[in-house]
Design a protein around this nucleic acid. Structure first.
Length: 943
RNA sequence: GGGCGCGUAGCUCAGUUGGUUAGAGCGCUACGUUGACAUCGUAGAGGUCAGAGGUUCGAGUCCUCUCGCGCCCACCA
C-alpha cells in the first residue's frame, strides 16, 4: 500500500471522517419503500429518548452502544434496519432546570407568567436539546438522524391528544378527588412510580385521645373485655408452654384503653406523622376485635382542635399492630381515605399545596410547615400529657423522584387512567411469549406489577408539557377534544377555559414506538416499521416506560410495540456504586472517546456486558478501565497494517482459484473463521453481546494474530513459492475481510478503516462499505476438521518447545534442534513446510524425524508424538529426571481418575455415550503418554 | 412484610441443558527491542467456586439451611 499507516491507531484521525462518510453515504437511513416496495425485512429499534436536558453519561454510552451493535449487525444481515433517535421533553426535570436558572436571576416562574415561561423553556431546549444527540454520534451511533423526534413535536402532540381523547371516550380516563402523591417542592401531583420509597429511621408516637364523657360506660365495658381476652390468652400460652417445643409466649394483646390520673378515659393510637392528627376525623378498630366492640360509635374529643370524632369499625385495621386502634386522617392517607369512604367519616384537608397547614386547623398551627407543625403538635400534646410514648420505627418514606423532597399524600382533584383493562392484554403478552425478556427473570417482575396495577395519576401542575385537552365552559360543560374548540357545544359560549395542567411526561413517551412514525396518520413509515423489534433499556424504567408502551401498543394496534425486551445492567464505579452526578464518580464518554477512541469504549463496554450483570468501571483510573478496549483496537489496527503492507499492491486471486494450494494453516484459519461467524451470530441472537465480543476477541487476537499471521509471514515475501504465496494472500484477505465484518458492529471505526484499504480478489464484487457488507454467519463457510487437528498438533509442539526453552533457560537467540518421532505424517509435513515459522516462533533451527541421542529434554505431546531436544551441557540430568517424574505423576493422577470413572458401572451406563467414549479415548491417550514418559525416564536414568 | 438476584484468581467478572485438568481481562513475576503491534511477545505464579448438609456414578452448576451483600415491590398506622 502506498498510503502510510501509523504504527499506533489514532482514533481521532479516523473516527470523525469515517462517521461523516457513513452519514453522507446515507447508510443510516432506510425509507419505508425498502420494506413496502423492495420487500426487505425490517428491523426496528426506537431509542429510549434521553431527556432534552441530559448530558451524555456512561449509562447512555452503554445503552446506545448496545443498540448500535444490534442495529449494525442486523443491517449487515440485510435487514431494513432503522434506529429512530430523539429526545423526551421530560416535564418536571426540564421545568426544574429552567426554574433554577430563573432562581439564579432572582426570579420565579410566576414573575414571567405561563406563556413567557414556556417560551423560555423552549429557548433552552432548542439550544441544549440537540447536544446529547450530537454526543451520540461521537460514540458511533448509527441512528437514522433524519427521523429524529421530540416528544413535544406537533405530530407527537397530536398522537397524545388522540390517545387522551380515545381513552376518555372509552371511559378509561377520568377525573376525581383521590389521595395522590404531592411534591411540595415541585408543587405537582406525581404518579405512584414517581414517589420512590426510601427506608428511613423514624419514630412511632403513641397518643392518648380522651374519650367523650358519655363514652365512659362503654370504655369500662371495653376495658373489662380486653382484660378478659388477655386472661384467656395467658391461659392459652400456658397450655402451649407445657409442650416442650413451645416458643416463648407472645406478649399479651395490649389494651388500648386507659385512664388518666384524674379518672378520665382515653384510647391509644399511634402515628409516624403527628401533624396529621389535626386532620383526624375518626378512630378505627377492627369489627371483630373483642376488646373494642363496645366503643364503636363512641366519640373522642380530639385534642388541640376541640372537635369530636367517632370511633368506627373497619376491616382494614390490623388488631395485632400497636393498640389495635388507628387514627383516621382521610385527606392525607390512602387507606384512611378508603376507610372514610366505607364508614362515612368526614374528609378534612389540613394542608396547602406547599405543605403548610391551612385554615382548617386551629390558629397556632395555621400556615406552619408540615415538619414544624410536627414539632409543635408534639410539644402541645406533651404539655397536656397526651403523648404515651415514642419508639424507633424504621419505615419507608416516599420521596419525589426528581427533587428528593418528601412527598405528601394529599387529597386532590386530578386526572387518572384506569389501568386494569389496559393491563390485561399486556400481561397476557408476557405470559404467552409475545414479548420476551432478557434476562428472563424480569418477566416475573413485569407480571407482578401488571397484576397489581393501580390507576395512574397523569395530571401535573406544571407548565412544561402537553396541555390536557380539556376545556371548561361557564355553563358547566366539560369539553374533551382532539382540536381546540371555539365554542361550547352545549351553550355555544366562547368563554372556554382549558384545564391548566399538563400530562405526565411518560404519557407521551409511552406512545414513542408508533408516534415517531406519524401515528395517528396511517403513514407508510408506520406500515413499514411498526411494530418494532428490540427494546433496549435499563430495568429502572420497566414500569415507567416499557410496561406502558406495551399497554398502548395493544390498545391502539392490537399487538405489542416490540417483541424482545433487553434490559441491561447499570454502570457502576470500582466500589460498586452507581455512577451519578451527585457522587461525582461518573466517567464522561466523550472524554473516553477523545483519549482512547469510540472503538475502545465500545469494546470495553460490550465485553463486560454479560446478560444480567452490571458494568463496573474505575472512574479514578479511566486509562486502566478502558485499557482492554484500547489495546484491542490497536491490535486490530496493527494486524491490519501488517497485512496490508505484506499483501502489497499485486492483485489477489479468488479463493476458488487457489483452493488446491491451501496449506494446513490456511485451511485451519478459514475453518476458524467459519466457526467464529457461527458463534458470534448465535450469541447476538440471544443478546449475549459479551460472548460475541469475547469470542471475536480471541479469534482475532489468538487465532489470527498469534498463530496465523506468524505462520504465514514467511509465505508472503517475494522469495517464497508463488503458488503458496498466492494461497496465503488470498486466505489472508478472505480471513481479514470476514473478521472485520464480524467485528464491525462492536468496533466499527477501525474495522471500516482497514477494510476500505483491503485488496480485493479479482473478479469478485465488493460491497461499497463495510457497514453494509453481508454478515458472515458461517452457515456456508469453509470447514475442514482435519486441518483443525493438524494445527492443534503444531500448536502443542510449539508450546512444548517454548516451555522447555523457558524451563532450561535457553537464551532467546539460541536456535535448537528438535527431534520428533511418532507423529502423524500431516504434522511432519506441516513442520517441514513451517521451518521458517518454527524458527521465528520457537527458535527451532532444525526438525529431525529421529529419536535423537544423548543428553537433552524429553516430552510427549498429547497426540503421542515424542519430542527430544538435545541439550548437552545445558541441562542437569537430575533436574530433567525430576521434571519427567512430575510429568508422569500428573498423567497418572489423571489416569487414575479416568480409570475410576470407567470402572464405575453406573457411570458407563448412565452417562451419555459420547462422554463415556471421550473418557475411554482419554484413558488410552494417557496410558500411551505415561508409558512413553516412563521409557524416557528409564533411558535418561540408565544413560 | 413479600419477591428477586449475587457471593468463583489480588481486582472486575464469564461459566449455555450437571460430564475430562474451572476460564477471560486487568494486575503480578521472569525473560525478551534483528521491521505489524512494548497499547507488544513468551513463559509463569495465583482459586478447598462464601459455609454446612443433601440428591447423583459425577455438583461451580440441582435441592435445603446458615452467613454476608444488593435490588425491586408493599396501604401496618
Amino acid at each position: 500500500m502506498s498510503q502510510e499507516l501509523a504504527p499506533r491507531l489514532d482514533p481521532r484521525a479516523i473516527e470523525p471522517p469515517r462517521y461523516r462518510a457513513w452519514q453522507e453515504g446515507g447508510y443510516f437511513h432506510v425509507s419505508a419503500d425498502a420494506v413496502l416496495e423492495e420487500g426487505r425485512e425490517p428491523y426496528v429499534i426506537v431509542i429510549p429518548p434521553p431527556n432534552v436536558t441530559a448530558v451524555l453519561h456512561m449509562g447512555h454510552g452503554l445503552n446506545n452502544t448496545v443498540q448500535d451493535v444490534l442495529i449494525r449487525w442486523r443491517r449487515m444481515q440485510g435487514r431494513a434496519a432503522v434506529w429512530v433517535p430523539g429526545t423526551d421533553h421530560a416535564g418536571i426535570a426540564t421545568q426544574n432546570v429552567v426554574e433554577r436558572q430563573l432562581a439564579a436571576e432572582g426570579k420565579h416562574r410566576d414573575d414571567l407568567g405561563r406563556e413567557k415561561f414556556v417560551e423560555r423553556v423552549w429557548d433552552f431546549v432548542n439550544e441544549t436539546g440537540p447536544v446529547i444527540l450530537d454526543q451520540l454520534k461521537a460514540i458511533g451511533a448509527s441512528c437514522d438522524w433524519g427521523r429524529t423526534r421530540f416528544t413535544l413535536d406537533p405530530e407527537l402532540s397530536r398522537a397524545v391528544r388522540e390517545v387522551f381523547v380515545h381513552l376518555y371516550e372509552k371511559g378509561l380516563i377520568y377525573r376525581g378527588e383521590y389521595i395522590i402523591n404531592w411534591c411540595p417542592r415541585c408543587l405537582t401531583a406525581l404518579s405512584n412510580e414517581e414517589a420512590e420509597g426510601e427506608e428511613t429511621a423514624g419514630s412511632l408516637w403513641h397518643f392518648r385521645y380522651p374519650l367523650a364523657e358519655e363514652a365512659y360506660g362503654a370504655a369500662e365495658t371495653a376495658y373489662e373485655a380486653a382484660l378478659a381476652l388477655r386472661a384467656e390468652q395467658a391461659d392459652g400460652d400456658e397450655a402451649e408452654a407445657e409442650e416442650p417445643e413451645a416458643e416463648e409466649p407472645e406478649t399479651p394483646a395490649p389494651i388500648g384503653i386507659g385512664r388518666f390520673d384524674d379518672g378520665r378515659w382515653y384510647v391509644t393510637v399511634s402515628t409516624t406523622r403527628p401533624e396529621t392528627m389535626l386532620g383526624d376525623t375518626g378512630v378505627a378498630v377492627h369489627p371483630d376485635d373483642e376488646r373494642y366492640q363496645a366503643l364503636v360509635g363512641a366519640d373522642i374529643e380530639l385534642p388541640l382542635t376541640g372537635r369530636r370524632i367517632p370511633i368506627v369499625a373497619d376491616d382494614y385495621v390490623d388488631p395485632t399492630f400497636g393498640s389495635g386502634m388507628v387514627k383516621v386522617t382521610p385527606a392525607h392517607d390512602v387507606n384512611d381515605f378508603e376507610i372514610a369512604g366505607r364508614t362515612g367519616l368526614d374528609v378534612l384537608d389540613v394542608m396547602n399545596p406547599d405543605a403548610t397547614l391551612n385554615d382548617a386547623v386551629p390558629a397556632p398551627f395555621r400556615g406552619v410547615d408540615r415538619f414544624e407543625a410536627r414539632k409543635a403538635v408534639l410539644s402541645a400534646l406533651e404539655k397536656e400529657g397526651l403523648v404515651g410514648g415514642r419508639e424507633d420505627h424504621a419505615h419507608s418514606v416516599p420521596h419525589c423522584y426528581r427533587c428528593g423532597t418528601v412527598v405528601e399524600p394529599r387529597l386532590s382533584d386530578q386526572w387518572f387512567v384506569k389501568m386494569k383493562p389496559l393491563a390485561e392484554p399486556a400481561l397476557e403478552a408476557a405470559r404467552d411469549g409475545s414479548i420476551t425478556f432478557t434476562p428472563p427473570h424480569w418477566k416475573r417482575v413485569y407480571e407482578h406489577w401488571m397484576e397489581n396495577i393501580r390507576d395512574w395519576c397523569i395530571s401535573r401542575q406544571l407548565w412544561w408539557g402537553h396541555r390536557i385537552p380539556v376545556w371548561y365552559c361557564a355553563c358547566g360543560e366539560t369539553i374533551v377534544a382532539r382540536e381546540d374548540p371555539d365554542a361550547c357545544p352545549k351553550c355555544g359560549g366562547t368563554e372556554l377555559e382549558q384545564d391548566p395542567d399538563v400530562l405526565d411526561t411518560w404519557f407521551s413517551s409511552q406512545l414513542w414506538p408508533f408516534s415517531v412514525f406519524g401515528w395517528p396518520e396511517q403513514t407508510d413509515d408506520l406500515k413499514a416499521f411498526y411494530p418494532g423489534h428490540a427494546m433496549v433499556t435499563a430495568p429502572e424504567i420497566l414500569f415507567f416506560w416499557v410496561a406502558r408502551m406495551v399497554m398502548m401498543g395493544y390498545e391502539f394496534h392490537g399487538e405489542a410495540p416490540f417483541s424482545q425486551i433487553y434490559l441491561h445492567g447499570t454502570v457502576r464505579d470500582a466500589q460498586g456504586r452507581k455512577m451519578s452526578k451527585s457522587l461525582g464518580n461518573g466517567i464522561d464518554p466523550l472524554e473516553v472517546v477523545e483519549r482512547f477512541g469510540a472503538d475502545a469504549m465500545r469494546y470495553t463496554i460490550v465485553s463486560q456486558c454479560a446478560v444480567g450483570t452490571d458494568i463496573s468501571l474505575d472512574h479514578e483510573d479511566v486509562e486502566a478501565a478502558f485499557a482492554n478496549g484500547r489495546n484491542f483496537a490497536n491490535k486490530i489496527w496493527n494486524a491490519g497494517r501488517f497485512a496490508l503492507l505484506s499483501l502489497g499492491e499485486a492483485p489477489v486471486r479468488p479463493l476458488s482459484e487457489v483452493e488446491g494450494d491451501l496449506e494446513l494453516e490456511d485451511r485451519w484459519i478459514l475453518t476458524r473463521t467459519t466457526e467464529a461467524g457461527r458463534a458470534a451470530t448465535s450469541a447476538l441472537e440471544r443478546f449475549r453481546l459479551h460472548d460475541a465480543a469475547e469470542g471475536l476477541y480471541h479469534f482475532f487476537w489468538g487465532d489470527i494474530c498469534d498463530w496465523y499471521l506468524e505462520l504465514v509471514k514467511g509465505r508472503l515475501g517475494p522469495e517464497s513459492d508463488p503458488a503458496s504465496r498466492e494461497a496465503a494472500r488470498t486466505t489472508l484477505v478472505t480471513v481479514l475481510d470476514r473478521a472485520f465484518r464480524l467485528l464491525h458492529p462492536v468496533v466499527p471505526f477501525v474495522t471500516a478503516e482497514l477494510w476500505s484499504r483491503l485488496p480485493w480478489p479479482a473478479g469478485e464484487s465488493r460491497p461499497e462499505d463495510l457497514i453494509v457488507a453481508a454478515w458472515p454467519d458461517g452457515a456456508d463457510g469453509f470447514a475442514d476438521a482435519e486441518a483443525g487437528r493438524g494445527m492443534a498438533e503444531v500448536q502443542s509442539l510449539v508450546g512444548e518447545v517454548r516451555r522447555l526453552r523457558k524451563e532450561y533457560g535457553i537464551a532467546e537467540g539460541e536456535r535448537i534442534t528438535v527431534h520428533v518421532t511418532g507423529a502423524g505424517a500431516a504434522l511432519m509435513d506441516a513442520l517441514a513446510a513451517q521451518a521458517i515459522a518454527l524458527e521465528r516462533m520457537a527458535r527451532v533451527g532444525r526438525v529431525e524425524s529421529s529419536a535423537g541421542t544423548g543428553v537433552g529434554a524429553h516430552a510427549v505431546l498429547e497426540s503421542g508424538a515424542e519430542l527430544f531436544v538435545p541439550l548437552e551441557g545445558v541441562i542437569d540430568i537430575e533436574r530433567e529426571a525430576g521434571r519427567l517424574r512430575d510429568e508422569i505423576d500428573r498423567v497418572e493422577g489423571q489416569l487414575e481418575g479416568t480409570r475410576g470413572r470407567l470402572a464405575n458401572e453406573k457411570f458407563t451406563q448412565n452417562a451419555p455415550a459420547d462422554v463415556v467414549q471421550k473418557e475411554r479415548d482419554k484413558a488410552t491417550q494417557l496410558e500411551e503418554q505415561g508409558g512413553k514418559l516412563r521409557e524416557k525416564l528409564a533411558s535418561l536414568e540408565g544413560g
